[in-house]
């Protein structure tokens, strides 16, 4: 991939919309890789015993997939200099249907001195905004 050029970016530019389909297998894989083995993310009996409707995705998985959409837009994973979010709503992952999180976003600011772009990233599951105030700062070429 090639890092996106500052000259090619304008405030208001949209990130391509991408849908990430999450199943139990996605969450087990993330639990293993990240070492976050909390059973609320893979054991529905346990999740329901603590008052959740079903298994929920790791917030850090939802954020990690947001990071992937930002690095794909930037054209270089090393270009993502800052990424932050609030976890506003859980992503409920049913056994039969799984869950779809739709990512998008737009460029909200450009800094000519540093050649950095600030992005606002959106992540929604059904009607729910699952990440709030999710912003990224990207170093452009």
């Amino acid at each position: 991939m090639t890092r996106r050029a500052f000259a090619d970016v304008s405030v208001g530019d949209a990130l391509p919309e991408t849908t990430v389909h999450i199943t139990r297998a996605t969450l087990v894989q993330y639990a293993g890789a990240s070492l976050d083995r909390n059973p609320i993310h893979w054991d529905e009996r346990f999740a329901q015993s603590v008052g959740l409707p079903d298994v929920i995705a790791h917030g850090m998985f939802t954020m990690g997939a947001a990071a992937t959409t930002v690095e794909d837009w930037a054209g270089d994973a090393g270009a993502v200099v800052e990424l932050g979010t609030r976890f506003t709503k859980p992503v409920v992952v049913s056994y039969d249907e799984g869950a779809d999180v739709v990512y998008g976003g737009k460029v909200t600011a450009l800094d000519e001195q540093t050649r950095q772009a600030t992005l606002e990233v959106s992540a929604t599951c059904g009607e729910d905004k699952v990440l709030g105030r999710c912003t990224a700062r990207v170093q452009l070429a």
Binding site: M1, Y30, G64, A77, G78
Partner: peptide, 17 residues
């Protein structure tokens, strides 16, 4: 190895990982 596992788990496909 851990960089690869983590990248695969969040769907990152940039070969720099």
């Amino acid at each position: 190895a851990k960089i690869r596992e983590f990248a695969e788990a969040v769907g990152a496909t940039d070969p720099v990982h």
